[in-house]
Amino acid sequence: MSKLRYALYTGCTARESTPELLKSTLAVAEALDIELVLLDEATCCGASHLQDFDDFLSLVLNARNICYAEKLNLPMVTICNTCQLNTSLTKERLDHDEKLKEKVNEKLREVGLEYKGTSEVKHFLYALVDDLGVEEIAKKVKKPLKGLNWAAFYGCHNIRPSELQNKSNGGENPYNPTSIDRLIEALGGNSVDYEHKNKCCGFHVELQAPKTANRLSASALTDAIDNNADAVVTPCPLCHLRFDVQQHNISKEAGREVHIPIFHLPQMIGLALGIEPEKLGINHNVTEPDFIS
């Protein structure tokens, strides 16, 4: 197999509040011999909030991001579910509406760019499980995640709406996603079966409706804990921020102590590949895991 190469759209959090996500992504890519070219020109995707305010502006900005991957002639990978949603939604709308595409390109041409639609957009998780393959990753495991129960939390914007997401997520079913669970097993861990793995963490209403956000998070984390999870792993930094930073507030809403370490997907993979915890930025996690020496 020829070397896998992608343009990496980091999104905002990987450059700010979850530096560990960028560190671990780069470390894992290196260990798996995947080349990632950073898209330093890219802006925020609007996180589904700019879209509420100004839909057209968000299309132009997202199309501009994709242009830079197209210029490199590379498929784009995202490491945030919400970046994945807004980027692929933009692509979908422009690729199926010539008029809209022309309207957007009219603006992009003012800055010397043109959206063509030549770069695929997929989340890094699916680059790993679908392009590289779970078996290939399993071959490189040095420290199997033996005896540990991992609860996969998929995050909404990688699996829904399935009509859109299925174009880049290997046909994952939103009611029974399996990719992360397969990965966990391949890394030597036990994947936890629990009802809330495909549910919402509530991140998007954290400011205006903290009670709702904490209730949703509480349902998910208590379900994972009650099914004997030792840790939760997620491909989405927004779910991670919610679960990792807000556990004290989630506990209050749950009416019981919710205490469980939360990992980014590449952090978990990196541990199994034998990468030093520091290179995976484990020291940045607010919920400290007690099983990493």
């Binding site: 959090t13 700010e16 802006t43 925020c44 996180a47 909030h49 502006l57």
Partner: peptide, 21 residues
């Protein structure tokens, strides 16, 4: 808070490209 949150993305992108969280 919700309205300013939506609008705030535009201000932040204008200033930095990526968000100032």
């Amino acid at each position: 808070v919700a309205v300013r949150h939506a609008v705030g993305f535009k201000h932040s992108i204008k200033k930095h490209g990526i968000l100032d969280e």
